[in-house]
Structure formats: structure tokens, C-alpha cells
Simulated assay, not measured.
Amino acid sequence: MYLGDEAWPDLESYFETESLALVPVGSTEQHGPHLPESTDHLIAEAFAREAADRAGYLCTPPVTVGVSTHHRQFHGTMWADAPAFRDYVESITRNLTEHGVDRVVYVNAHGSNVDPLREVGRRLRDDHALYAIEWMWNESIPDLVDDLFEHPGPHGGPKETALVQHLAPDLVHDDRLADARDGGVVDVTTNDTIVNGARTYYDAIDNTPNGVIGDQTDATAAKGEQLFEAATEQLVDLCDWLAAQEFQALMPEPHR
């Protein structure tokens, strides 16, 4: 069930019987010359909607702008500074408690959102308001990602490219895949951006001139479908596990 499509009286029965919501979280930022700036929130919403439909849970509208300051040198990137992002996500999550939601899965598709989302989850749990956890699709199926791609790339690589080829093929510039690979960095570990144990980079452009890492030519829609099916199964299982927990068991242990 997608919250944004429902009239309010038709949501009553859900809140009478369920207390879990999926909140998709992504970004609006450059993903190289071949992928749309909507890549992360497109992927996050697709996973959240599919899992919600399969398992009978509620999916909220997506958070479409994330912590993306490090992509600001590339045209069109939008971002929220981490404190503003945390406060916004915390606010929209807290308001779900007004309707009886006491557990949330942040269906996340942007790496730099992870730490802020974890902080939001801690705040909400410490207040005994609700239990919120962050889920990142590729972290749920690492073996499959490694099996499918030699150089998956942490950003704009073949794993994200394959997913968008599967979910929204009209948004992928397939004729630019070789340019994306050749104008970027195939393997970020070959860069000289760690010196004596210190990371010397701050922005994506410090690591890759066109904003992406990995071998994009290794992506196909068929691989994207494999990724989507496998990760969706993981997300459904996570939601079922979380829904089955006693609320008090999810709250912090008392001081000893």
C-alpha cells in the first residue's frame, strides 16, 4: 500500500492492524554521464513499494534529497546538510507515531545517508518513540553483487546501472556506458587518495573526474532484475521479522 495514493478513511484499517511503515530515502545527485540524478530515490522507492505490496505493509512517499554535498561540483546535484537532513527525517518519522506506527524501515539507496539515518534511529529509540532501522539494498546481497560484477563501483557503477536499466530503462544512456567507464575510475583503490592511513579526499570529484566508479559496461537489465528480486526478498524478510517483534524488546535496555 502506498500512502500517497490513499484517501485518509481508507488507511484506517491498516493502522488498526499494522504498525510498520517503509520510508524510502535516496538523493538527487549526479550519477555520471549515463544515469539520471534521480537514481538513488528511484531505486529506494522501487524497493520500498515492491516490498510493501508483497508483504502487505505501508510505504510512505520518498525522501528525494539526501546528504550529497560531496557531489556539488556536478550540475544539478541537490543536497541537505547532515543536521538539516537528520532533523527533517526525524520529524516526518515522528509524525507517523500519531497514526500508530511504532517501527520504521528506512529503505535507503544512498551511502552518505547511512550515518544520519542511524543517528535518527538512535534518537527515536532513546525517546521510546519508535524503532527505526536503516536498510541498504546492496548490503543485503553482497555475495550476489560480487558474483555479477568484477568492478561494481561504490557510485554510479554497474550495480546501480543495472538496477535502473531494469526499473527505468528509458532513463539510462546506454550509448554512454563506455564513456562513463573510460572517463571515470574503474577501481577506486588505484587512486592515491589515502596517504599514510589518512583519507585525503572530501568530494567525489577528488576521486573521479566524471563522478562515477566501476565498469558500467558490465551492466544489463537482466542483472538488474536479479539484484532487484534478491534484495526485495531480503527486505520483505526484514519487515516480517520486525513486525513480529514485541515493541518493548526493541527498546533500549535499562541502566544497570
Rank of each mutant, 00 (worst) to 15 (best):
F85K: 01
T189Q: 08
D182G: 04
Q248H: 13
L242W: 03
D5C: 02
V186A: 11
V63H: 00
T161N: 00
L163Y: 02
E229I: 10
R125F: 15
Y2W: 13
V188I: 05
V186T: 11
G26M: 07
P33I: 04
L3F: 15
N196Y: 10
Y201N: 05
P252D: 15
R86M: 04
S27M: 07
M136D: 15
E12P: 04
M1W: 10
T17N: 07
D206V: 01
T200R: 08
G111N: 11
F15V: 03
D102H: 13
A52W: 13
A244I: 05
W137R: 01
R122C: 01
A55R: 06
D192S: 14
L3Q: 13
L238V: 11
T39R: 02
D115G: 03
A55C: 09
R199Q: 09
A132F: 07
I43M: 06
D143H: 06
A198F: 04
A230P: 14
F47R: 00
E98L: 05
H70W: 15
E246Q: 13
I194A: 12
V145E: 10
T232Q: 09
A80L: 12
H155Q: 09
L130C: 14
T17L: 09
G183W: 03
R181E: 10
Y88H: 12
Y131R: 08
H155M: 07
